[in-house]
Design a binder for these strands. Structure first.
Length: 497
RNA sequence: GGGAUGAUAGCUCAGUCGGUAGAGCAUCGCCCUUUUAAGGCGGUGGUCCUGGGUUCGAGUCCCAGUCAUCCCA
């Protein structure tokens, strides 16, 4: 055949050039390599479910998807096609298709997107298969897919070219399907509880609501600096002042800090506020919320990560005070020790200490470095030192503590929750102390969010509030070891410069 | 910021003592009408991460750097 001779002469060097030649030849034959609308297809999953084995009549099927395997056996061709719901085998031969169509069908490649029509049958090996009577090329793939058996394993490439990871690795795709099912359930739950989803600024004139370094940018029209939000808290509280009683915001926060297995510079958080509630209200809410999601998405409260690690979400969850949990680790006399003894003992326990650390810092170092990662089963750690949490109400029986919890699951902080501070005089004092201490994330020029304080001075109802780290929640529920496995396009260093 | 490990064909990976760059898959050609990681035969395909150095000769040894993974701070 002259066509073949021509191709040999051209001697294409790589797959892309070969495909380019194929595309040009298709176009020359009036076949569109990048086709158009192809409607009326069923999901492969539905085709499988509705197939009836013991009936005589033909059972037609139409599918659209990507070719994942292509096995040519002379005059007979088996292929696998994959859509969002699954995979099914295709069978074609030179009798079912016209000579021209069969010739064209033979030129298809793994990776091409095609539309298929045909009747269902069962092969000798017992596999449900579509006998192709008609097909349409919907998109020619110009580049080869990764290796069919091993898939794409290179982690860097899986993150940089996530679409290949999603095509090749079903486990990876499943995690993201679960991610978005979890988020849908979360919204459904809050909706049913009469919470209103709101949107507040992500671009803020000053960053507040958390201790973290913000991303800074510049707004040309106003010629002033702007910050990507590190938390929506201070705006949501303004809404409490404004009379919204049950609100939540589910969106991205940005923190200009390091990346790790547990940190991405942008991450998703839901913050929930309920007027006239408190810390206790929030503990009950988050228990119910997480168990409902687990039950609805996974059908179980026992989340197995490995043979050694299963997280049991059965209520009620353990509640323990911050002091108790530290004493469990550092000894019941820990809080009676002098600062120098604490430093000494901290060193023995294996944390890094220095002489400038305060009592509270060294205790918190013990908590963060030695305790947090051991809290695998759901645990509410309550009653934290006031200095650690500038936006929460003090405990009535002990003004050195605040009425808050940190929910720890899977060794990570999943959700902090507070009885929100609504005393504007106290709030101003706390902000000023923060500035004086030079806390991380506090504006260096000592600027305080006066606008927020003014709002609170108009009267903010007592309220319970909490934030749930969605990425970590999803890691916990799906068993993912890295935040990069639950974020579709995680941050990486740009490849070329 | 420090340490360990890695980077070789589009993908998954070998590469011995420093001596002509390899396999499987993919791709192209031929054979093959029930295969399914199809099979058989033959081809195409390489900035061995980058830049230096040692050497007659470097994928391999040395130095510096880039990117990634894990651990530590």
């Amino acid at each position: 055949m002259s066509d073949n001779n021509k191709e040999v002469e051209v001697k294409e060097e790589d797959i892309f050039s070969q495909r380019l030649a194929k595309v040009q030849e298709l176009e020359a034959n009036d076949i569109k390599p990048f086709g158009e609308k192809f409607e009326g297809s069923s999901k492969i999953e539905d085709i499988r479910n509705s197939y009836k084995e013991d009936i005589e009549e033909l059972q037609p099927a139409q599918v659209a998807g990507r070719l994942m395997a292509f096995r040519v056996m002379g005059k007979s061709i088996f292929a696998d096609i994959k859509d969002s719901s699954g995979r099914i085998q295709l069978y074609a031969n030179n009798k079912l298709l016209s000579a021209d169509d069969f010739k064209l069908y033979k030129t298809l490649n793994v990776g091409d997107i095609v539309g298929i029509e045909g009747n269902l049958f069962i092969t000798q090996k017992g596999e449900l298969t579509i006998k192709v009577s008609n097909f349409k090329l919907l998109s020619k793939s110009m580049r080869p897919l990764p290796e069919k058996f091993h898939g794409l394993t290179d982690v860097q490439q899986r993150y940089r070219q996530r679409y290949l990871d999603l095509i090749m690795n079903d486990e990876s795709k499943q995690v993201f399907q679960q991610r978005f099912a979890i988020i849908r359930e979360l919204r459904k739950f809050l909706e049913a509880q009469d919470f209103l989803e709101v949107e507040t600024p992500m671009l803020q004139p000053m960053s507040g609501g958390a201790a973290a370094t913000p991303f800074e940018t510049h707004y040309n029209a106003l010629n002033c600096p702007m910050f990507m939000r590190i938390a929506p808290e201070l705006y949501l509280k303004r809404l409490l002042v404004g009379g919204f009683e049950k609100v939540y915001e589910l969106n991205r926060n940005f923190r200009n800090e390091g990346m790790s297995r547990r940190h991405n510079p942008e991450f998703t958080m839901v913050e929930i506020y309920q007027a006239y509630g408190d810390c206790q209200t929030m503990m009950e809410l988050v228990e119910e919320l997480v168990t409902t999601i687990a039950q609805n998405v996974f059908g179980t409260l026992k989340i197995k990560h490995s043979d050694e690690k299963t997280i049991d979400l059965t209520r009620p969850w353990r509640r323990v005070t911050y002091k108790e949990v530290i004493m469990e680790k550092a000894g019941s006399d820990w809080f009676e020790l002098s600062l120098s003894d604490k430093i000494k003992k901290g060193k023995e326990l294996g944390i890094h200490t220095d002489d400038k650390m305060t009592d509270i810092e060294i205790s918190n170092e013990i908590y963060e470095k030695l305790i947090e990662s051991t809290l695998i089963q759901p645990t509410f750690v309550t009653r934290l030192p006031e200095q650690l949490v500038p936006l929460a109400k003090k405990c009535e029986d002990d003004p050195s503590l605040v009425d808050v919890f940190e929910l720890e699951i899977n060794g990570q902080e999943i959700a902090p929750g507070y009885s929100e501070l609504n005393d504007p005089i106290e709030q101003r004092k706390r902000f000023e102390e923060q500035v004086k201490r030079g806390d991380e994330g506090v504006d260096e020029s000592g600027k305080i969010d006066e606008d927020f304080l003014t709002a609170m001075e108009h009267g903010m109802p007592p309220a319970g509030g909490m934030g749930i780290g969605i990425d970590r929640l999803i890691m916990m529920l799906t068993g993912a070891e890295s935040i990069r496995d639950v974020v579709l396009f995680p941050q990486l260093r740009p490849k070329n410069q």
